[in-house]
Write a protein that binds this DNA or RNA. Sequence first.
DNA 1: ACGTGTATACTTGTATACAAGTTATTATAA
DNA 2: TTATAATAACTTGTATACAAGTATACACGT
Lengths: 243, 243
Amino acid sequence: MTESKDFLYPQKWLSKASAGDRVAYELRMRIISGLIENGTILSENKLAADFECSRSPVREALKTLSSENIIRLERMGAVVIGISEKEIQEIYDVRLMIETFVFERLVRMDTTELAMELSKILEMMKVAIKYQDADEFAYQDVLFHETIIRSIDHSYIEMIWNNLKPVMEGFILLSMRVRFKENYEDLTRIVKNHELYIDAIKAKDRNLMIQSLHQNFDDVQGKVDDLWRSQQMLSTGVEQQDD
Amino acid sequence: MTESKDFLYPQKWLSKASAGDRVAYELRMRIISGLIENGTILSENKLAADFECSRSPVREALKTLSSENIIRLERMGAVVIGISEKEIQEIYDVRLMIETFVFERLVRMDTTELAMELSKILEMMKVAIKYQDADEFAYQDVLFHETIIRSIDHSYIEMIWNNLKPVMEGFILLSMRVRFKENYEDLTRIVKNHELYIDAIKAKDRNLMIQSLHQNFDDVQGKVDDLWRSQQMLSTGVEQQDD
DNA sequence: ACGTGTATACTTGTATACAAGTTATTATAA
DNA sequence: TTATAATAACTTGTATACAAGTATACACGT
């Protein structure tokens, strides 16, 4: 039980977060990473003991996680749904759906400011690669897409994003940690991909955008593999919990 | 303050609901209907007193409502966002988006069972018209679309629906109550519209589906007008609250 | 051996208490 | 009259207490 006290979610990102948020972020990571297996039944009391807090923050976290579709609240306990291949596919269905929608709006807007902002984020990503900071890279990657989505000022599209984001973030976080160790050269390809996306936004070229999205999606397939490897790394590094 | 104790949400739909759910459903209706004006700052304590319960269920309700984008949780109090013309447009953007996505899946499935189920719901709607039960009609209307969406078994599309549904339901509820009083003949047109939708699903005809969706959308524009009328009816029938 | 009832150890939902922080108000001084 | 400091009345976030319901295990009678 030595390793299990480690946190999967970057603690510095939680500096001003409430206990409820902390539980949500960490619990989410443990579920996405497979550390907590699908089908597991979570009890509020056990979680409260685990996270050394009262049931109030735990309840809040469980409600959040259930609205993100990674657990299911039932009469007795919360059942872990987690992220299997099907869910990953579904998440990217939705991402494709909303990003396509967003692009249709973007082509009717002035995108110079957005393109500038995205370029800045891209620079950040390059720096993160240079200093081998996987977490920072993941953060900027998520921010990149969030910036695009928020630029059209559509509160209900943003609502969808808000529900998707935490899971995406966790997913990408785990994936990038593996890549920084094992597939370092992949990162430059991801950067290229994002450059393509910016070009598409600048040129307002649908074909280019579709192309970029699809390449991004191919990357995702890679991420899926990474995730499994990440799960294996975790599960072999940590002893089994008895129930 | 005589009228303000009335409930906007059908109480019989809350038979087994928790206090938290009751607060959420009723508060949502008061926000959507405009009974609680946009920009109002809600306090947990005041709401708890209003609904005669403790802060726990109120907190739960506020969290739900904020994930539905009709309030915004801030440091001090929850700010009511509500549903203005912009939000209604946005909600229907999303509905169009997901229902189009769903249809693309449907055309690759066996839809006979679904069509049967939808026909049943349509019959229910006709009965509701016959007995002038606006709430039941609204319920079946929402169920109709929910049934279509759930038929493709896509948990993240369902996630979007789950976040959208309560607001949609409330919105349609208010709209139908007005129509049953003032635009009774509209209802048969809505039924026709749904029949068209079923035909599109049976025939797997994209054009027919698009046509039906757009007519449905025209209906929505009507609903928007109804909503304003509903809001006026409420605001003139109820004395102002002093703050 | 097997069904049935009961005791027990869980579970959630809700109320309440308390701490820490923010806003508003009031009193005081210039 | 105005600026400022202190106090009072809020606010949320978290812990805890309690009630009501549910699953489990165990004993008992058949």
